Amino acid sequence: MGKLNGKTVLITGAARGQGRAHAITLAAEGADVLALDICAPIDTLSYPLATPADLAETVRSVEALGRRAIGVVADVRDSARLRQAVAEGIEALGDIDIVIANAGVAGHGNNYHDQDQLFRDIVDVNLRGVWNTVQTVAPRMIEREAKGCFVLVCSAHGLSGGGGNGTAGVDAYIASKHGVVGLMRDFAHWLAPYSIRVNTIHPTGVATDMVMNDSVQGFLNSEPRIANEMRNLMPVPVIEATDVSRAIAWLVSDDARYVTGVTLPVDAGCLTP
Rank of each mutant, 00 (worst) to 15 (best):
L26G: 05
Y258H: 13
V181R: 06
A175K: 06
N126L: 00
P139T: 10
I142D: 06
N111D: 14
I196P: 00
Y112A: 04
L34N: 05
G104A: 15
V59R: 05
A56R: 13
C270H: 05
G13Q: 06
V72N: 11
V59D: 01
G13D: 03
A35D: 05
P224I: 01
G19L: 12
A172K: 08
K7H: 13
R246S: 14
L26W: 02
V236A: 12
L152Y: 03
G218K: 07
D97Q: 11
N213P: 00
H22D: 13
H108W: 15
A241S: 15
G19W: 07
A207S: 15
G166P: 10
S160T: 14
A56S: 11
R120I: 11
D114K: 04
V33W: 00
V33P: 06
N5F: 03
L251E: 02
T51D: 04
G94C: 04
T263G: 03
A103P: 08
D267V: 10
M184A: 14
G30H: 01
A92M: 07
D255M: 06
V266G: 07
E88R: 11
L233N: 09
G30Y: 07
G2D: 14
A35G: 09
V180K: 02
T25G: 04
N111C: 08
A40H: 05
V252L: 04
A146L: 14
F187K: 00
H202S: 09
K147L: 00
F150M: 03
R185T: 14
D37A: 13
V181F: 03
H178N: 06
L264K: 08
L55K: 13
N111P: 02
D37M: 11
A40P: 07
A64E: 15
I142R: 14
P193L: 09
A35E: 00
H178S: 04
L159A: 13
A23P: 05
N5R: 10
A249S: 15
N228M: 12
T58S: 04
V105P: 04
L45E: 08
G158I: 02
P48E: 07
A192Y: 03
Q18L: 15
Q84C: 06
A146F: 00
N228Y: 09
I11Y: 11
H108Y: 14
P48S: 12
T204H: 06
D37T: 12
R83H: 14
F119E: 04
S215G: 02
W190H: 00
A188Q: 01
G269H: 09
M141P: 03
A188D: 06
P273S: 13
G148C: 02
A80R: 13
G269L: 11
D43H: 11
G205C: 04
G30M: 00
D255I: 09
V76W: 00
A87Q: 15
A207E: 13
E143S: 12
M234E: 14
A74R: 02
H178K: 02
G169W: 02
L220V: 08
N5Q: 12
G71A: 10
E63T: 13
A14K: 08
S245I: 05
D121A: 02
E29I: 05
D243V: 12
A268Q: 08
H157T: 03
H189E: 13
E29V: 12
L49A: 09
F150Y: 03
A146W: 04
T200M: 02
Q18H: 13
R140V: 10
D124C: 01
D254W: 07
S245D: 05
C154G: 11
V236H: 07
A15Y: 05
T200Q: 01
A256N: 02
I96K: 10
V130T: 14
L45K: 06
G66L: 04
